[in-house]
Amino acid sequence: MTKNWKTVFNPFERYAEKDLAIAGVISLLLSVLLFWWAGQTNDGVYHVSPKAGLSLTGAVSEAVVCTLLLCGLLSALGKTINPRTRIIDVLNATLIHRIPLTFGILILQLPFIKSVMDQILQAVKNNRLETLSGSALWISTAVGLLMMAFLVYAIVLLVNGFRTAVHARKAIHYLGFAAALIVAELIYRLLFYPQLLKL
């Protein structure tokens, strides 16, 4: 793998923690504004749904809670693997990995894509999927694949950031990582998100 491609998938080995932190905080702020503007809510750590009337306070709270929850669980895991793990390194990985997810939300707001998605939602709601055009189906399929690619890229960034921060090498470390993501999803959906809905 060339150096440039390696940097794309693992910027944590090349850039200083301060640069990563600045990029991560900027991306977090942009994602908050984008979610608020687009009316999209984080009803899961890795799941987004439309929410009319989402407040700026709600968008900020969701982004911060998702980030800190994931960072907290991965930091705790990191400390058990390597007591010298620094929370700032795990936090940087958690922040940076949100960048492709934010791009995904931005793409969904493109007018022609938004129009197709609205058509599909309306057809599902009316139980009239047969009324959808072939182009709508092709566009929705392409968008779905693109969103999956963004999610995979985000997870790759988080894995590489975690590995760099913790010096994870063994298979059990990655099993623990996967378990931490599942636990984060459950805790957020069952405990935090119901409270955040009130904001």
Rank of each mutant, 00 (worst) to 15 (best):
L77S: 06
E62C: 02
L69F: 05
T57Y: 08
A63W: 02
L121G: 13
L74I: 00
K114C: 02
V65H: 05
V60F: 15
Q109N: 07
I120K: 03
I99C: 01
I81C: 07
L95H: 02
A63E: 12
T102W: 07
R86W: 00
H97D: 04
L101C: 02
T80R: 15
A59I: 08
S75R: 03
I88F: 06
L69T: 01
T80A: 15
L56R: 08
Q109V: 04
L106S: 08
V64Q: 13
Q122E: 15
R86G: 07
E62G: 00
C71M: 12
G72W: 05
L69E: 04
F112I: 11
K79P: 00
V64T: 10
V90F: 04
L95S: 01
L68E: 06
S55V: 12
P111E: 03
R128S: 14
Q119P: 11
G104I: 07
V65G: 04
Q122C: 10
L68V: 09
L74N: 01
F112S: 12
L77E: 05
L121R: 12
I120H: 06
D118E: 14
L110G: 06
I88P: 04
P100W: 01
I88E: 11
L106E: 00
A63Y: 01
G104R: 05
I105F: 05
H97E: 06
T57W: 10
P83M: 12
L106H: 00
V90A: 02
T94Y: 00
R86F: 00
L77G: 00
A93W: 01
L77P: 01
I113A: 10
Q119G: 09
I81Y: 07
L70H: 03
L108Y: 10
K114F: 04
S115A: 15
Q119D: 15
N126F: 10
A76T: 12
S61L: 13
G72L: 07
